[in-house]
């Protein structure tokens, strides 16, 4: 169990009063999660870094509008979602020129790093909406209702995107599943 002397809502209250150091501490708690979420969405480290900075700047400027500090994480990821999709919309022609991502080379005997890369490639095959649903649920642990708030859509849409994505991932990663099962038996 991780004991925190100061909880996020305390830091938010201090940051709202202009305490920049309190905000920096809050940023340090969330920046890696936000960066990784953005990295998987925009697929570029520099873009993810730039957008992360924009997200935390916008969050700082909008802190007075945050109604419930206990819901900071969902609110923060809502800003991150908006910024990421704004970038994706601006870069769409470039992305279309780049074409479809290459299929993953799913060698049945993968090292952990290769497995990680295979998962990354499989995620890259999903549509941005589907990928984001997986990121928010599997990697960020949000509940369906929280995801619906972040994405501003009904829970049914969240489930539809996530379930379709899981079916596609299951099919893509199936060769590894079989190998893993054979390895266990």
């Amino acid at each position: 169990m991780i004991f925190r002397e100061v909880e996020d809502p305390d830091l938010i209250a201090k940051a709202r009063r202009g305490d920049v150091e309190a905000y920096n501490l809050l940023v340090s708690r969330w920046e890696k999660r936000v960066f990784n979420y953005l990295l998987r969405l925009v697929s570029n480290r520099e873009d993810a870094m730039d957008v992360s900075q924009d997200v935390f700047l916008k969050a700082y400027q909008s802190l007075p509008k945050l109604d419930d500090p206990a819901r900071f994480s969902g609110w923060l990821f809502r800003i991150a979602h908006n910024e990421a999709f704004s970038l994706l919309r601006r870069k769409r022609p470039e992305a279309e020129l780049a074409g479809e991502p290459r299929p993953a080379d799913l060698n049945p005997r993968l090292l952990p790093i290769e497995l990680s890369l295979a998962v990354e490639t499989a995620l890259g095959r999903l549509s941005p909406d589907q990928r984001e649903a997986v990121l928010l649920k599997v990697y960020q642990g949000f509940k369906f209702e929280e995801m619906a708030e972040i994405l501003e859509c009904p829970v049914s849409t969240v489930k539809s995107r996530l379930y379709t994505a899981l079916d596609l991932l299951k099919a893509t990663l199936a060769p590894m599943h079989k190998t893993a099962l054979r390895g266990e038996s």
Partner: peptide, 13 residues
């Protein structure tokens, strides 16, 4: 499938 997804490395900033 979820276990396989969890092998994705978390990147350093």
């Amino acid at each position: 499938t979820l276990d396989t997804l969890s092998t994705l490395r978390e990147e350093e900033m």
